[in-house]
């Protein structure tokens, strides 16, 4: 038996222990609270150690309306995911299978399969907890029981301009059972929690192998172009003049770029990171794209700045504007004020 198998066996022993027994054990001899680093390590290692399937509820606030989605989520080591959407009606029946290489989405209403790139990343090489601790202010808020399991509540504050996250991490498995995100004003904008979860050491592989329903049409949407790591390479790849400074707001550093394509549409995409969150700047010549009429109107920069649009997607926010015959868009999981400041800075650049 290898070291990994010993850890897994110990985990399973802990998982299969009846919940009341665990509570009694807690009452007799309370375990010492783990430190933030060790719970983060457990959390980051979980995708390589444990399979699970459960029912997840996600609630987001998009502008003035709340949206709740219920999903059957199954995860298998390393990096395979199955999502079956139960409600609301608009997504009911949707199936997404990510086999670690490709994502297969089946839409029953259109009898359509859409194939795209995998979005389950990092399961094989988790980011060191020490790196995350350097970027976030992590604090332990205490312990809570979530669906009958012991969790440690972590608060992650990325510093100025980011969303504050609260995570309820299963102490035995490291799986996050509940997540809350608050905006800069302290309002909850995103909640995700398992209403039921079942752990396993080996979910069937067949569950994560997509089988095309008979007669379904298949579309391939691999929209991303080749990734480049410098702004100059991105300029060359785009073939049109783009604004791509090395830093934004003296805080976000250019991380990578690519030309996103879909059919005749192409946009230069530059991703910036402050080490915690990412923002992406998209640029498309106005001659190739009319200005999108979405979201609500806003003014970029000063009162005499260009008119723009703001779109709240709950988890992500978008600011769109037009300047120098180019359509710009900035997206990120950051407050509107940060996106507006980035837009003003890009508009003011020569």
């Amino acid at each position: 038996m290898t070291g990994t198998h010993v850890i897994i066996a110990a985990l399973v022993l802990g998982l299969t222990m009846p919940a009341p027994a665990a509570v009694r054990f807690e009452a007799r001899a309370p375990r010492p609270a783990p430190d933030a680093a060790s719970i983060l390590k457990t959390m980051l290692a979980a995708p390589a150690l444990i399979d699970y399937e459960g029912t997840k509820v996600i609630s987001t606030v998009r502008g003035t309306r709340a949206e709740t989605v219920t999903i059957l989520e199954a995860y298998k080591r390393l990096g395979r995911l199955r999502l079956e959407f139960l409600s609301p009606e608009s997504v009911s029946g949707r199936l997404i299978v990510d086999d670690g290489v490709d994502t297969w989405q089946y839409e029953p209403s259109m009898h359509l399969v859409i194939r795209g790139p995998s979005f389950v990343q990092g399961a094989g090489s988790p980011e060191p907890a020490e790196d995350i601790l350097r970027r976030y202010t992590v604090s332990l808020l205490g312990r809570e029981a979530v669906i009958g399991r012991d969790t440690v509540v972590l608060a992650l504050a990325p510093g100025a301009g980011g969303s504050n996250r609260h995570l309820w991490v299963d102490q035995a498995t490291g799986v996050v059972l509940r997540t809350e995100e608050r905006d800069a004003g302290g309002e909850i904008v995103y909640v995700s929690y398992f209403s039921r979860i079942s752990y396993s050491l080996n979910l069937p592989t067949a569950l994560f192998t997509f089988r095309r329903p008979a007669g379904a049409k298949v579309l391939s949407f691999h929209v991303s172009g080749g990734r480049v790591t410098t702004a100059d390479e991105l300029r060359r790849q785009a073939g049109t003049p783009i604004v791509a400074p090395p830093r934004l707001l003296n805080r976000y550093v250019f991380r990578d770029g690519r030309v996103a394509r879909h059919g005749a549409f192409a946009a230069a995409a530059a991703t910036y990171s402050d080490g915690v969150g990412v923002v992406t700047i998209f640029q498309t010549p106005a001659s190739r794209m009319a200005f999108p009429n979405v979201g609500r109107e806003t003014v970029v920069g000063s009162m005499r700045g260009p008119l723009g649009r703001f779109l709240d997607l709950g988890y992500f926010r978008v600011v769109l504007w037009q300047s120098r015959a180019t359509n710009f868009a900035v997206l990120g999981n950051v407050p509107q004020t940060v996106l507006m400041a980035i837009a003003a800075e890009l508009t003011g650049m020569k």
Binding site: A260, A290, P292, L320
Partner: peptide, 20 residues
């Protein structure tokens, strides 16, 4: 058409980038 689909391409691309 680009104005119709552009924001969806942006959201998709950014979501894929954020998955890291």
């Amino acid at each position: 058409q680009a104005a119709d689909i552009g924001v969806d391409v942006y959201v998709r691309e950014h979501a894929l980038v954020s998955s890291a």
